[in-house]
């Protein structure tokens, strides 16, 4: 479900790429400091995007900058930056990852997933204590989503909106004048992510006779639907009046979110081409 909200690095200039990378590294470092080294592998780009957009909306001045070597890059030092938002994003990262592992355990009875969930349980409890309302709401929505999927809901808007509310809660950083718009933005982005994931899994789900919300929708409509959902998302984005990091953020929202999809399509095209030869 995660990893779609990343930048299209081909289209970034050198400075933007360095900055984006340093944001990611700052989040990684913060995860390690707040939640232990093991939590660094749960890092995803979606939370990096969360740092960018919230830092922009709240106009946060970068708090810490530095250079370090890390486990993934033991040879060269690399830049990182982080601020208070990064701390919040690292907490949300733990929350979503924990629920994701639980979800995989429920769905596939994956022992690996159960094991992973247990490993992060302590950190999850720390975050739950810090954000009791958020955790409760997200838990509730995940349960609701699970029921919707179990009953085989054929209206894709329903599970998509349920998932959207989860991300909306994550983007609603504080109870203030920005909350409502950020929540709407998160909801719209979440709806897109859920449907994009369903599109990517569609054929596999069909073959394995698993639930897919798009099963009654003709697949030649998928691209249109995804465009409409991103249109909704970027409409709310425009209302946020983002100035800082605007280009990087728009790279992600207008281009980056399609990378996995385009890659899959290109691979399929090649496969079909090889077959016809």
């Amino acid at each position: 479900m995660f990893g779609y909200v990343a930048a299209n690095r081909e289209k970034l200039n050198e400075d933007q790429e360095k900055y984006y990378k340093a944001c990611y590294c700052g989040l990684c470092r913060t995860l390690g400091k707040e939640h232990g080294a093991k939590s660094r592998i749960t890092l995803n780009y979606d939370m990096t995007f969360l740092v960018l957009i919230l830092s922009s909306v709240y106009n946060i001045k970068v708090v810490e900058k530095g250079q370090e070597r890390c486990v993934a890059h033991p040879l060269d030092k690399h830049d990182y930056w982080y601020n208070d938002i990064t701390k919040y994003a690292s907490d949300m990262n733990i929350l979503l990852t924990y629920f994701n592992f639980l979800d995989d355990w429920e769905d596939d009875r994956s022992l690996l997933a159960l094991g992973e969930a247990k490993v992060y349980h302590k950190e999850f409890e720390k975050v739950e204590k810090k954000y009791p309302e958020k955790t409760k709401l997200i838990k509730g929505k995940l349960k609701e989503l699970s029921l919707i999927e179990k009953r085989g809901e054929t209206n894709p808007d329903i599970p998509a909106e349920s998932f959207g509310e989860i991300l909306g809660e994550v983007f609603a950083y504080k109870k203030d004048e920005h909350e409502s718009k950020l929540r709407d933005f998160g909801k719209a982005l979440g709806k897109f992510i859920y449907i994009m994931d369903a599109v990517m899994d569609f054929k596999e789900d069909l073959k394995k006779e698993r639930y897919n919300p798009l099963i009654t929708v003709p697949s030649n409509m998928f691209k249109d639907i995804l465009n409409i959902l991103m249109a909704d998302c970027t409409e709310v984005y425009e209302s946020l009046n983002v100035v800082k990091d605007k280009e990087l953020i728009e790279n992600i929202l207008y281009s980056g979110v399609w990378m996995k999809y385009e890659l899959k399509k290109a691979k399929e095209k090649e496969k079909n081409h090889e077959r016809s030869l």
Partner: peptide
């Protein structure tokens, strides 16, 4: 609304060759 978004999206250009993307 989807088409308008798609037009803006296309100004970022197509995705480069599969090799590096893979």
């Amino acid at each position: 609304r989807g088409r308008t978004y798609q037009q803006r999206s296309q100004t970022f250009g197509s995705f480069e060759d599969i090799g590096t993307m893979c």
